[in-house]
Write a protein that binds this DNA or RNA. Sequence first.
DNA 1: GTGAAAGCGCTAACAC
DNA 2: GTGTTAGCGCTTTCAC
Lengths: 354, 354
Amino acid sequence: MATIKDVAREAKVSIATVSRVINQDDKVRDKTREHVLSVMKALGYQVNVNARALSTQKTATLGLVVPDISDPFFACLAKGVDSIARQHQSQVLLCTAQNSSDSEQQAIDSLLQRRCDGIILYCTHLADSALIDIVQRYSNVVVVARNIPEIAENCIYLDDELGGQLAAEHLLALSHSRFASIMSELPIQDPKLRLSGFKTALDKQALTLTEEQVVYGTPDQLGGEQAVNSLLKNQQTFTALFAYNDAMAIGAISALEEAGFKVPDDISVIGFDDIYLAHYSRPKLTTLHYPVEAIAKHAALLAINKHSNKYSQLDKTVHSHRYQPILVERQSTVFAPTAAPKQSLNESQIERQN
Amino acid sequence: MATIKDVAREAKVSIATVSRVINQDDKVRDKTREHVLSVMKALGYQVNVNARALSTQKTATLGLVVPDISDPFFACLAKGVDSIARQHQSQVLLCTAQNSSDSEQQAIDSLLQRRCDGIILYCTHLADSALIDIVQRYSNVVVVARNIPEIAENCIYLDDELGGQLAAEHLLALSHSRFASIMSELPIQDPKLRLSGFKTALDKQALTLTEEQVVYGTPDQLGGEQAVNSLLKNQQTFTALFAYNDAMAIGAISALEEAGFKVPDDISVIGFDDIYLAHYSRPKLTTLHYPVEAIAKHAALLAINKHSNKYSQLDKTVHSHRYQPILVERQSTVFAPTAAPKQSLNESQIERQN
DNA sequence: GTGAAAGCGCTAACAC
DNA sequence: GTGTTAGCGCTTTCAC
C-alpha cells in the first residue's frame, strides 16, 4: 500500500506537505493541495493510522470486552459503545472472553497492548482485586455491571438488588406466595444481589425462599431449561418463577410448557434485562428493564474522558454511576391461580401507579 | 505507559534484549530473561502492538463491517469472524455502517487505514462497482452475501434463489395456493433472488405472485409488521406468507395476530435465516437455515489467507464459495385451511424425505 | 508555504 | 548472548 513517501515523491513535494494536506492544515497553497489530493487518489492512498497513533499517542479506538457477542444483551452493549465511538471518530475493538478469568485477563492485555483510548469491561470471572489492579494502573478502563468501592469512579452498574426487590413486589401484588428462582451460576455479584433483593421483599410479607427453591445454571436459554427441569424433578411446587435474565426465563417457559404447565396461567415467570427478544417471545415476557445501551454509552464516554483527563462534569453530574431497573409488565405474569382475582386486581392497579 | 526503553534502562540491558524476551527468542540467557521479565512485570509493561505492526507489517486484526451489531444475524456473523480471529491470535475491529453507501465506504476506509490483515464486508448499500474497485486494489477484502462475478474469488454467499424455491416448494407441499410475500427494501440482490426463486417454483405449478402480493419494508420486526398491515389494508387474501427474514416474519406474525388471524391455523408464515430467535418465538418459526457462522468463518479464513498470499487449497477445495440454505420445519407453517389434510399429509411426508 | 529532521515504540539485520 | 542501528509511516517542531 502506498505510503506518505510515495505520495510525496509522486507529487514532488515533501512529506511534511503531504502530511499537512492529510490533516487539513490550512497553510498549504490551494494548488499544491489539489495536486497532492489528486496524487493520493490516483495511488489509492490511505493513511496508516497505526503509524499516526505512534506519533500522536491517540489510537481513536475503544476497546470492549464481553463474554459473547452473539448474546443479544451484549450485542446491545456493543451497540451503545459503538455509537459513542462514532461520535468521537473512533472504532470499537471487540474482544470476547471465553469463560475464565484467564481469558478475560488476556483480552484486557491485548486491548492495553493496542493502546485503546478507552476500555470498557464486562467481566464475569475476573476477581475484584484484578480489576482494581488494572484500573489503578490504567485509568481509562471502565468496569460495567460491577460495583467495586475501591474503584467506584470507574464502575457503572445496575442496582441489581432493587431489581430483585421489584420483581418480588410485582409477584406479591399478584398474590403469589409460592416462589422459585433460577439464577446464573457465574461467580459475580449480580445473581446474589438480585436474589437477596428478592428475598428481602419476600421477608417483609413473612414469606421465604428456601435453598431448594433456587437452582443455578448457565445464564442462557439452555441453562433456564435445565434449571427448571431440576426444580421440577425435586418436586418443587410454585406459582411464580424469578429468572436471572430473559434468556433463562425464555428457556424456563419452554421447559415448563414441555412439562405440561401453562405460562402464565399455571405459573408466572418474570425475567431480567428486557432484551429485544422479550417483546417477541410468547407469552411476551414481564421483566426488569436493564438500560444497557445507556450504561454502555455512559461507560464509553467516561473512558474517553478519563483518557483525555477530563474528569469532573460529565461523570458526576450527568448521571450517577448506579442505574435503576424498571419493571416492564407484559404477559408472562398474572394472578396466582388460587388467588381471588377481583380483589387483587385493584391492588395490582395501585401497585402499577408507583 | 512504560516502553521497551524504560524496561531496558531499568533492567540495564539493551532494547534488543528486551525485544528478544518479548518475542520469546531463545538466545537469551535464562537469568537475563527472568530479570527482564520481572522488570516488565514491575513496570506493568505492555508491548505496543501498533509500533510492532509498523515494523512487521502485520496488525493481527480482522476488520468487519456490518449494518447493525445488535441484529442477531450480524451478531452471529461477528461471532464466526471472532472465532477465527482468536485462532489466529487476532482481534476483530468492528465497524457498523449506518444506512448509506457513504457510511459503508467510510467504514471500509477506516479499516484500510488500520491496515487490518483481513477485511470482511457485509454491505447492503454499496454498489457492485465500488466493491470491485476495493477488492481489486486490496485483495485481502472478502465480500459476504453478494455474488459479484468480477471478484468471485473474494465473494462468499448464500444461494438465495434456492432458498426462495425451497420456501415455495414447502408451502406448495402443504397445499397452499394463495401467497403473499414481504421483502426487504434494501438495494441489494438478496430479496430479488429470494423472490425470483419463490416465483420460479410457483410457476411450475401454474401459480403466480402478483406485484400487489409483494410488499417491501425494512428487514426487521417493525418492517414486517408494517408490510403485513399494508398487505391487509390492500385486501390481499392469502394463506401463506413468505418473509425476507425471520425478523420480518416475527413482526408479521405479531401483526397478523393483532388483526385477528391465527398463525399458522389461518395463515402459514415462513421466514429466512434461522436466527436463534426463530426457536424461541411462538409459534416456532419454519424458516430457511442460513449457515451464517460457517460463512463468516470461511470468509475470515479466506481474508487471512489472501493477506498472506496463501491462496490455493483452502479456498477452492474445502468449500465452494456458494452455500445452500436448508429448510427447517417448525410450527409456523401447516396445511392450507381449505385443503384436505389427510391426502396432502402424505405428499408432505414425501417432500420431507427429499 | 514549504522542507529537513527528530522522534513515537518496536523489529531485525548485523556486529561483536 | 548481547548491543547498535536502520528503518516501519507518520506528526511536529523549527528553519527558511
